[in-house]
Design a protein around this nucleic acid. Structure first.
Lengths: 252, 252
DNA sequence: CGCCCCTTTGACGCCGTTCAAATCATGTGG
DNA sequence: CCACATGATTTGAACGGCGTCAAAGGGGCG
C-alpha cells in the first residue's frame, strides 16, 4: 500500500535531522511551484510552502497506482522511483525512472487521475505537493497557472525526447543513450557523473529499453570489453565518455 | 514556407462557402477552448471566437517548424498533418499524424516554442487559435487555464499511449494497432471506419511505426492474403475487424 | 549459512533489415 | 492527349541482430 502523506507529515522535522545529502530546493523540479506557494517563507535554507509535505516510500512501495485520483505532485529528494504500467496478466511496462530533483505526477492534474503507477526502486524520500488543494482554493493565481503549464510542457517534452531517443535504434545505441542520460541526470546533483549506481534490476532497465534482459547484459559486457565502461553488478563506471557518445547516433 | 494565418484570415468567409464536409465544432479538439473564448457568439451552427482564424496549408507545406516561437494552437478541419522532426543530414523522424478534429501544438504553450515540425500531408484546412494573445491579455480566467491544463494532459496521455502501444511489439502487432487506431480516429467523423484513405506514403508510415518500408509492405500483403484487409495503393478496407483486433496484444 | 532471485553465458532460430531491381502511380511538358 | 520522367510501391534474396530457451554462476537478505 502507498504511504499516505498525512501519516508521514508528522515526521517532517525528523527527516531534516537524519541527513543524507538531499538535493537543494533550487535543483528541484517543484522549485517554482514551491516559490509560488511559499511567498518567501523559509526555514534555514529550505523553502517551507504550506502545501508541501515530506514522505517516505519504502523499497517496492507504490506511491500511486494507475488510475488513482489525482491529488499530489511529487519530487524525489533521495532514492529513485519507477514509472510503470502493470498489466492484469502479470508483466509490466516500464515507462521511465525518476532521480533526485525530478518531478512526478504532473500530467495527472488535467486528467484528474494518474495514468500510470509509481513505485519506489529503493527507500525514497519525496516531497509531496498538494496541488489539488491549491488549485481548488482561491489562491489559483495567473502566475501559478503559468507555472503549471510550463511544468507540464516540460514533462511532455521530456517524454517525447525519450520516445525519440530510443525508438528504432540498435541495442548498443539505446544503451549508450540511456547511460549518458542517467549520468547527466545524476550528475546534476552529484558531480561524480561517471559513477552510476543503478537502482533498478537488469530486467526493469531492459524492459524500459525495449529489449530482452540477456541482450542488455551482452551489450553491457561488450562495452566493458571495449574498455568504455566498467561493470560491477549495478555499479557502473564510465571510463571513456567520448567513445560512449560516439555510439549515440544523430542528435537533432 | 509556412502559410501565415494573417494572410489566410481574409479568406475566412470563402472557405465556409467551398464546402467539403468539415467536422462539427463539437467534435473538435479545440471546442472547449473556443467556448471559453467565444462566450456564446455564433454564426449559424459554427462558433466564432475572436482568437480563431482559418488557414489553408497546401500539400507539403510546413505549418510550423521545429523551434519556432509559439503563438497558435491548431485543429485540423479537413485533410491530414504530420508531426515530425527533420534532421540536418536529411532523414526525418515521424512522430505522429493529425486527422480532422485533432489538436496540434498545445505543448508548445508552456515551452514557448514548438518542439517539432508540422507538415501538411495533403491540402489541409485548419483552425488556428491565437493562444499567445489570449493568454497575454486580461482575459486569462481560471476557467481558461483549467481548460488549457486539461487539454495538455490529454495530449500528454495520447503521446504516452502511442508510445506504449508501439514499443517492443512485433511488426504485425504494430501494424494492426495503427490500422485500428486510424480507423477509430477517422471513424469519429466519418462512420465508414472500415474504409481508410491513408494520406501518407508507405515510407512515412513505416518511419512512424519504426520499421523499414519493405517490411510494412510485406505485412500489409500478409494481411491481404489472410483476407483481413484489402489494399489498393493507399486505399485500405478493413474486411475482418475482429481478426485484426486479435493481432493486437494485451490492452491494459 | 542457505535460499532465492538476479545476473550472466551459450546455442539456436527467426524476424526484420538491407540492397537491388522491377513495376506501378503521378504529374509534367510537348 | 500522349510520352516520358520521377518517385512510390512492390518483390526477391541473403545476411545478421536479437529474442528465446536452458542452465550455470553470483550476491544479498533473512
Amino acid at each position: 500500500m502507498a504511504a499516505t502523506p498525512d501519516k508521514q507529515a508528522r515526521q517532517r522535522s525528523l527527516q531534516c535531522a537524519l541527513g543524507k545529502p538531499a538535493i537543494a530546493c533550487e535543483d528541484c523540479g517543484l522549485y517554482h511551484l514551491c516559490l509560488q506557494d511559499a511567498q518567501g517563507r523559509m526555514e534555514g535554507r529550505r523553502i517551507r510552502p504550506p502545501h508541501l509535505e515530506t514522505l517516505h516510500a519504502p523499497r517496492g512501495d507504490f506511491l500511486v497506482t494507475a488510475g488513482a485520483p489525482f491529488r499530489y505532485v511529487y519530487a524525489v529528494r533521495t532514492g529513485a522511483m519507477e514509472i510503470c504500467l502493470p498489466h492484469e496478466d502479470g508483466p509490466v511496462d516500464v515507462l521511465g525512472f525518476a532521480f533526485p530533483g525530478e518531478r512526478l505526477g504532473m500530467e495527472a492534474l488535467g486528467l484528474g487521475y494518474y495514468p500510470y503507477a509509481i513505485r519506489a526502486l529503493e527507500h525514497t524520500i519525496l516531497c509531496a505537493f498538494d496541488l489539488r488543494s491549491l488549485a481548488q482554493g482561491r489562491s489559483g493565481s495567473r502566475r501559478l497557472y503559468a507555472a503549471l503549464l510550463r511544468l507540464m510542457s516540460e514533462d511532455f517534452q521530456r517524454l517525447q525526447s525519450s520516445y525519440i531517443a530510443l525508438r528504432g535504434l540498435q541495442v548498443m545505441a539505446r544503451l549508450s543513450t540511456i547511460l549518458l542520460d542517467f549520468a547527466g541526470r545524476i550528475g546534476k546533483v552529484k558531480d561524480t557523473s561517471s559513477q552510476l549506481n543503478l537502482p533498478m534490476t537488469r530486467t526493469e532497465l531492459a524492459n524500459f529499453l525495449g529489449m530482452a534482459p540477456e541482450t542488455l547484459c551482452r551489450a553491457l559486457q561488450q562495452l566493458e570489453n571495449d574498455r568504455i565502461i566498467r561493470v560491477h553488478g549495478r555499479r557502473i563506471r564510465i571510463l571513456d565518455h567520448r567513445r560512449l557518445e560516439r555510439l549515440v547516433p544523430r542528435q537533432p
